[in-house]
Every structure is written in structure tokens, then in C-alpha cells.
């Protein structure tokens, strides 16, 4: 095992995947706690589909993928939050609409340009080779922002997540924080989806929170445990992917699933 680890660290692209991916996993878990508990977990799924559309368009236009994907996904995050508030369209239908339209745009643009290529395939299911130096820088900046948010505004995030009406009534700018969380989620997803894949990134947001809530009951403990679970699962998945030659996104999701099952069992047994 140590030999494998040593070998792992000798590849530049794997070190980049580890740094950027590990930080993305941490951000996803922390942001996910607030999103999942507010019943907004599908926002991750929606944004990753938008990201797919944007990346496909960028690939066809031959421009830097992030330069297009980041602004588009942030606009989509605004749009989904706004649609969700409007009672005429429910937020789950809003997300489903935005998702399928984005995939449709991505696929159409790709097929006009000669059909699925490896780039587009890797956007769908992720690739360990995807992380560039820029991604590493962005993910470091992103995780610093997310950590600042959770360290210095922790109680406000709790109040908004638990009861946004009460938080607003006591003068917390709940809409501003919700928007901030949505933007950070959008950025995290754009960086993370290229290693995890469009179809799989949303599990990084949902699984850690579900795993943590099945064994601990306080909000702070859930936040801390979900961060730990997510990072560990990321590295276990990455290691398995390398040693057994598995697709990286899928093996990270499966690691999360196994941990979730174990913690569910532990939670059930400890209640007996």
C-alpha cells in the first residue's frame, strides 16, 4: 500500500487531483449541510447540468472552459433561487427544467460539431486527468472562502438553515447568505464536476450530510463530521480508482455510499 501511495504522489496530475479534489470535497460537504437541510439538495444536480452545457459550448468554441462555465453557472444559481421563490414555479420543477434544457443545449452544440468526443465524455463521468494548475488555485481560493464563511458566520448559517424567517426577523440578511452559498456552490461544482462528472458531483453535496446526520444530532457536529467523511471518502475513492483502475468519480461515490450505509447501521444500532 505504501508503495502505491508513493507512486501516487510521484505523478503531478494525481497530486493536483488530490489537492483540488480534496478541497472541493470539503467545500461540497460544508455547503451541502445547509443545502440538504433546507431541502435544496437538488440545486447541486441542477448546477452541474448547467455546467455540462457551458463546458460543451466552451469546448466547441475552443475557449478556456472555466471562463465560460463559471459565469454561466453563477447566473444559473441566481436564476434557480429566484425561480424557487416565485410560487408559480416550484423549486424542484425549476431545477428539473434548467437541468434538462442545459443538457439539451450541450448535446445539441456537441453534435453539430461532430458528435461526442473524449472531452464531453469526461465531463459526463469525470476524469482524474482533468485538474489543471488553474483548478488547483481556484479550489484553494474557494475553500478559503467557504471556511471563512463557516468559521466566522457559523451561527448565522445555522439560523438561516434552521429557520430563515426567524433569522430575517432578527436582522440577518438571509437572502444575501443564501445567494453567497449558491454562488460558492456553483463555483465548487464547476471545479469539481470535471473530476467527478456531471452525473456524480451532486452526491458529494448530499452524501456527507446524510451520513453525518445518521449518527450525530447537533448541527455543529454534523458540519464537522460531514467535512471529515467527505474528505476521507474522496481519498479512499481516489486510491481505489488508481489501484483497481476504476473511473474516479464512480469510485468516490461508491466510497461515500459504503460509509453512508455503515453510519446508518451504527446510528440504528446505537438507538436500540
Amino acid at each position: 500500500m505504501f508503495d502505491t501511495l508513493k507512486l501516487l504522489f510521484s505523478y503531478d496530475f494525481i497530486v493536483r487531483a488530490m489537492v483540488a479534489g480534496g478541497l472541493v470535497a470539503l467545500c461540497c460537504a460544508l455547503l451541502g449541510v445547509s443545502l440538504v437541510l433546507k431541502r435544496f439538495s437538488m440545486i447541486g444536480d441542477g448546477l452541474s447540468h448547467v455546467g455540462f452545457g457551458a463546458l460543451s459550448v466552451a469546448a466547441v468554441m475552443n475557449v478556456a472552459p472555466l471562463a465560460i462555465a463559471i459565469p454561466v453557472v453563477i447566473v444559473a444559481a441566481f436564476f434557480i433561487l429566484k425561480l424557487g421563490k416565485d410560487s408559480r414555479v416550484q423549486s424542484d420543477s425549476a431545477i428539473a427544467l434548467v437541468s434538462s434544457v442545459s443538457i439539451a443545449i450541450g448535446v445539441t452544440v456537441t453534435s453539430l460539431n461532430g458528435g461526442l468526443n473524449t472531452d464531453v465524455y469526461s465531463y459526463m463521468f469525470g476524469s482524474i486527468l482533468a485538474m489543471s494548475k488553474t483548478d488547483v488555485y481556484i479550489s484553494v481560493a474557494l475553500s478559503v472562502a467557504v471556511l471563512i464563511l463557516f468559521l466566522f458566520f457559523y451561527h448565522k448559517i445555522f439560523a438561516i438553515t434552521f429557520d430563515s424567517d426567524f433569522a430575517k426577523a432578527t436582522g440577518v440578511k438571509a437572502d444575501l447568505y443564501n445567494m453567497l452559498i449558491a454562488i460558492l456552490t456553483a463555483l465548487t461544482i464547476v471545479v469539481g464536476m470535471r473530476i467527478m462528472g456531471t452525473m456524480l458531483i451532486s452526491s458529494l453535496i448530499i452524501f456527507p450530510t446524510l451520513s453525518a446526520t445518521s449518527v450525530v444530532k447537533g448541527f455543529r457536529k454534523v458540519v464537522i463530521l460531514s467535512g471529515i467523511v467527505s474528505v476521507i471518502c474522496f481519498f479512499v475513492g481516489l486510491y481505489n480508482s488508481y489501484s483497481f483502475n476504476l473511473p474516479v468519480g464512480a469510485s468516490i461515490v461508491l466510497a461515500n455510499f459504503v460509509v453512508f450505509c455503515i453510519l446508518m447501521l451504527v446510528g440504528k444500532i446505537s438507538k436500540l
Partner: peptide
């Protein structure tokens, strides 16, 4: 001070009693 109508999602929310009460000091 405000006591809102109860919301459904609070039913399974992972929070301890003290965490909920302390959030009243936010203002």
C-alpha cells in the same frame, strides 16, 4: 422576539436544544 409558525422541515433537523435557543442572540 418572534415565534413563527412551525415548519415541516424542522421535524428532522439535526440541532440540539441549546443550539436552537442560542440562535436567539443573533441580533
Amino acid at each position: 422576539g418572534y415565534l413563527p409558525q412551525q415548519k415541516d422541515y424542522q421535524k428532522n433537523f439535526p440541532a440540539t436544544v441549546i443550539e436552537v435557543v442560542m440562535s436567539g442572540f443573533l441580533n
